[in-house]
């Protein structure tokens, strides 16, 4: 399994694409929103938590279709399925690799964009913490969507349509943590619910994703 993780990371770094692209997209969102909304600091501070979370979510979405589609096209998915590691484990490792190259950098870079959006000082800790806890769920749920659409040609748009509704709870709790944190309110409840979604999704969804891949390869 470690070999698979190393391979996926290596491929992500070498072929560029997903890794830098997601971050660049995140940056673009943070630059475009003030241009659209206007430069008033108070307005930006109000919407910063939501914009940062929505931006991170869309940046995550960009590279989802690469999780399985590339392996499906070149035949690796067939060979991985017949290899000694269980398919469920393979899905989990691939979701982890996706998180390491998208979710983790987004989490690390988010405070910088928080400055651009005038996020109140008390919100930064919660921004990083909520993204750190929530983006793994985005990768795991996204891997499920990617598994459903792996056999569909040009399935990118379909993938977004399937995955975005599934992202709703994660988005709500994640943005809620930052919003409350920025206002200095108590954040424990949404934070725990967010962690619950991540843990629950990581535990259950790989089985659904593996089932979807088996059905597609059949």
């Amino acid at each position: 399994m470690r070999a698979l993780l190393i391979r996926d990371l290596r491929l992500a770094f070498r072929s560029g694409g997903g890794f830098g692209l997601g971050l660049a997209f995140f940056l673009l969102v943070a630059v475009l929103v003030p241009l659209g909304v206007g430069p008033q600091g108070s307005t930006l501070a109000l919407i910063a938590p939501g914009i940062l979370w929505v931006g991170a979510l869309l940046a995550c979405l960009l590279s989802l279709d690469r999780i399985f589609a590339l392996d499906f096209e070149d035949g690796s998915l067939d060979l991985l399925t017949t290899s000694p590691i269980p398919l469920e484990g393979m899905v989990a490792v691939k979701a982890l690799a996706h998180w390491l190259v998208t979710g983790l950098p987004l989490t690390v870079c988010a405070p910088v964009l928080g400055v651009l959006l005038n996020l109140p000082a008390s919100g930064y800790v919660w921004l990083v913490l909520s993204l750190g806890l929530g983006t793994p769920a985005l990768s795991v749920i996204g891997a499920f969507g990617a598994a459903l659409t792996v056999g569909v040609k040009r399935g990118g748009l379909l993938l977004s349509l399937l995955v975005l509704p599934l992202y709703v709870p994660t988005l709500i709790f994640g943005a809620e943590v930052v919003k409350r944190g920025a206002l200095g309110m108590e954040v424990a409840t949404p934070l725990m619910l967010l962690a619950g979604i991540t843990l629950g999704a990581s535990a259950m969804l790989p089985f659904a994703s593996a089932a979807a891949i088996r059905i597609t390869l059949r």
Partner: peptide
């Protein structure tokens, strides 16, 4: 899977 997430969304939205 959608049913589970739809239910979760319902409570999330209430929150």
């Amino acid at each position: 899977v959608g049913s589970v997430f739809a239910l979760l969304s319902r409570y999330a939205v209430n929150f």
